[in-house]
Design a protein around this nucleic acid. Structure first.
Lengths: 184, 184
DNA sequence: CTACACATGTAAGCAGTTACATGATTTT
DNA sequence: AAAATCATGTAACTGCTTACATGTGTAG
């Protein structure tokens, strides 16, 4: 299992719809757990069938209706069990880094352009995450938040995501400059 | 395809055996491309069958023999084509980060212990990568190396790996401290 | 009346995981 | 004589990717 626990974690203390989860996994969680939108719906159905989640129809005005999911007691137990299990090896797969590794086989300018584009994307993602983190703090100092808030999980993980995207942006810009600096 | 191009990149200007590649993917490349040892052998066989690599038996004394692989012209062309292709979305999957997200469902001490353990592992990996990078420089300044070396790819990618592991180590230590700081 | 955001799925195919399997050589 | 490192695979299963499919409501 895999995506399973990421979904349970995302639903730990709130109800979210499949669509809201696709947004979360695209923007907020993608720096440490990747999942395609279609797969989320498939996995949500399985989790409901397995009794780890329950879905509830929510009628909306001005929008299509949606189904929100909530953790069951069994789901919470399963999540707790997961936190005690041994970690599977971290899996990272990034085409752009492989391309950087293969720089000698690439057109330096084309590669630099890709790096600069990614740098901008990562910078934007880092800024988005910084905003989300500030919202969580809600004016409190980090120390106060970390010692008093109920659930600091999203803040902890969000910080890692922000760091990751920031460093990615910096590295991409540096690598692009290095490649451009080699042009005659 | 996927692992395919990571292997071609690793063999860009050198011959390596399957076993040497497992070590490289475990230590040097794991921060941006994950692959299990078994899968490498499977993929190497496919790449050879497809004519992108050629394998040569190397008789060794004091060790079992090995087969080293070399890029063919077709393989190099394929790698160059890859550097121009559109990137698939970066895929990251890290159990430990999901556990951090689910902190509220976890035993704080047990989670902190896992984070501290990972911090040490990442620190060690960062140091190993720093050594490898220093070897590549071979006494030269970074600027000199980047402007004059033949193939700067492994240096560029290695730097990203070092940054990643260092930041991971820092974050894990910080997150563990935050969790421990909440204990009465 | 077109484009965009919201909203949710199904189905085929395969890349990658998990488990199993083997053997040489050096070091302790 | 055991443990560690070197060295290379096979086979079953499945989680995930890729491609396809559909429909509502808002904004320009």
């Amino acid at each position: 299992m895999a995506l399973r626990h990421a979904l349970l974690a995302a639903l730990l203390d709130r109800e979210l719809s499949g669509y809201q989860l696709t947004k979360l996994f695209d923007l907020g969680v993608s720096s440490f757990w990747h999942a395609a939108a279609q797969q989320l719906y498939v996995e949500l159905a399985k989790l409901e069938a397995d009794g780890l989640l329950t879905g509830h129809e929510v009628v909306q005005q001005g929008r299509p209706n949606k189904r929100v999911f909530r953790l069951t007691d069994t789901g919470l137990e399963e999540l707790t069990r997961f936190t005690l299990s041994t970690n599977k090896p971290t899996s990272i797969r990034d085409d752009l880094l492989v391309k950087a590794y293969a720089a000698a086989a690439a057109d330096p300018v084309k590669l630099a352009e890709q790096l600069e584009q990614r740098s901008a994307q990562s910078r934007a993602k880092a800024e988005y995450l910084a905003e989300q983190l500030a919202k969580l703090l809600g004016g409190r100092s980090e120390h106060e938040y970390l010692t008093t808030a109920d659930n600091i999980g999203p803040y902890l993980a969000g910080m890692r995501g922000r760091m990751y995207e920031e460093e990615q942006a910096n590295w991409c810009a540096w690598a692009a400059a290095a490649l451009r600096g080699r042009m005659t």
